[in-house]
Design a protein around this nucleic acid. Structure first.
Length: 425
RNA sequence: GUGGGUGUAGCUCAGCUGGUUAGAGCGCCGGAUUGUGGAUCCGGAGGUCGCGGGUUCGAAACCCGUCACUCACCCCA
């Protein structure tokens, strides 16, 4: 038996309504905030990711699905959505468009990691990117969208944590100070952090190992190295969050894994998830557009993990199923007429179904029940001879005889009251 | 890349210190009801016990290897 490769998952019909619900909720909120959907390729030239995410990050160093194209050029399956979006923004010169450039996207991402709860090799993200606005209200807007849409999904135990990473210059000033301190306590740090001192010193502050936490308790704070402009920006971000009632916690240790973030960094965690408790995260990345060859355009965005949302989406958030009509056609004449009737119903916009395997009326009704049909049309040879069919209400068991030629219009009007969106499930 | 746990029917799982034909519940199909779903009763189908080797008179069980899944580390959404 050929099986799916490690770290990918099939989404079976039973669970796809949940996913559609999540995706539609996210998209609806984003559109309401003025974001517009962009669809970019799932693979790009490798250097795009190497230059945007950061050459020394784990993602680039060991997690990318990279392969050679036929002409030898190196391609990579996207490990995240920002790089491709920024590339498209630059390539199509969207900065020239006077309207706000606010994009949202959804789709699969790929990282070669060991799978575990809430982490897959092919996983799915929904994200937004807001280009061209340096105003802190753009940060607030993005965090607000993130918070509102997750709350709308009734996800339990959410926390929004934020931090100020400062400008690149601020971090450049801070890094040597921090490194000097870390070298002083090097012996007390875990092996990983000892390695991080050179590779990614800020990340040491976010280590979960208790000893590392203790060792870095008196570390110089990034906040003390921040320029007045960076402080002012963050101040206005927090003020904005307060103003519109978005609850948040300051987390001075929060460091995002990707190199391109600056100023505002944020993360929403969920207490009901496994070890991978980050549902969504993002931040400002003012230098990235320029770094990838565009103009100096500020930007801010976030991404949420759809698998992680699906994991904690309460069962109670059920998706209404489409009311259906089942055509129970049996007998030689009935089966033929029923098949035509089925097609007529469908062309008239009535969601209808039939199980061609069923022969007896009993088997048909059992299927109608399983499929959750509201009505079943009983159509046997007797009915054909009389030109009438029996319409059975599956909930009340009430039956009435109707002329076959009136069935379609009758069902159209009957279902009109109960159908909200004909093809929503 | 590193550790732990688990692999028995479509699903959830029993299966004792190795013992004869590998079980249950749910689900599925059929019948009781020759044209009326869900409940009940009766019957039935369905298994390379993850795979390969080994020990043994005898292995689902013990040993070795291997693969898969899973959780965690790392990292991240």
């Amino acid at each position: 038996m050929i099986k799916a490769i490690k770290g990918v998952k099939d989404l079976l019909p039973e669970e796809s309504p949940r996913w559609r619900f999540i995706e539609e909720t996210a998209r609806r909120w984003a559109l309401a905030y003025g974001f517009q959907e962009i669809r970019v390729p799932i693979f790009e030239t490798t250097t795009l990711f190497a230059r945007s995410i950061g050459a020394t990050t784990d993602i680039v160093e060991k997690e990318m699905y990279t392969f050679a194209d036929r002409d030898g050029s190196s391609l990579t399956l996207r490990p995240e959505g920002t790089a491709g979006t920024v590339r498209a923004f630059i390539e199509h010169n969207r900065a020239a468009d006077p309207r706000p450039q606010k994009y949202c996207y959804a789709g699969p991402m790929f990282r070669h990691e060991r799978p575990q709860a809430g982490r897959l090799r092919q996983f799915h993200q929904f994200g937004v990117e807001s280009f061209g606005v340096a105003d802190p209200r753009a940060d607030v807007e993005v965090m607000s969208l993130l918070w509102r849409l997750l709350s709308d999904l009734s996800l339990p135990g959410l926390t929004l944590e934020i931090n100020n990473l400062g400008y690149t210059d601020d971090r450049a000033r801070y890094k040597p100070v921090l490194v000097a301190f870390l070298k002083g306590v090097e012996q007390r740090l875990c092996a990983n952090c000892q390695r991080r001192i050179e590779a990614n010193p800020l990340r040491v502050l976010d280590c979960k190992v208790p000893d590392c936490r203790i060792a870095t308790e008196d570390a110089p704070r990034l906040a003390d190295s921040l320029s007045p402009a960076a402080r002012d920006h963050f101040e206005r971000v927090t003020t904005g969050l307060h103003a519109i009632g978005i609850p948040f916690h300051m987390n001075p240790r929060l460091v995002r894994g990707l190199d391109y973030y600056c100023l505002t960094a944020f993360e929403v965690t969920c207490s009901h998830l496994g070890a991978q408790n980050a549902v969504g995260a993002g931040g400002r990345y003012d230098g990235l557009v320029q770094q990838l060859g565009g103009a100096a355009i500020p930007a801010v965005g976030f991404a949420v993990g759809l698998e992680r949302i699906a994991l904690m989406l309460p069962e109670a958030v059920v998706i209404p199923s489409t009311p259906r009509v089942y055509v129970a056609a049996f007998g030689t004449k009935g089966a033929d007429a029923g098949f035509s009737l089925l097609d007529e119903l469908r062309r008239a916009g009535v969601p209808a179904d039939m199980d061609f395997r069923s022969v007896s009326l009993k088997a048909h009704l059992r299927q109608a029940d399983r499929l959750g049909a509201l009505y079943t049309i009983l159509l046997g040879d007797d009915e054909i001879d009389k030109g009438i069919a029996t319409l059975r209400n599956m909930q009340t068991k009430a039956q009435e005889d109707l002329p076959i030629r009136d069935l379609v219009s009758s069902l159209q009007s009957r279902l009109l009251t109960s159908i909200s969106t004909p093809f929503s499930s």
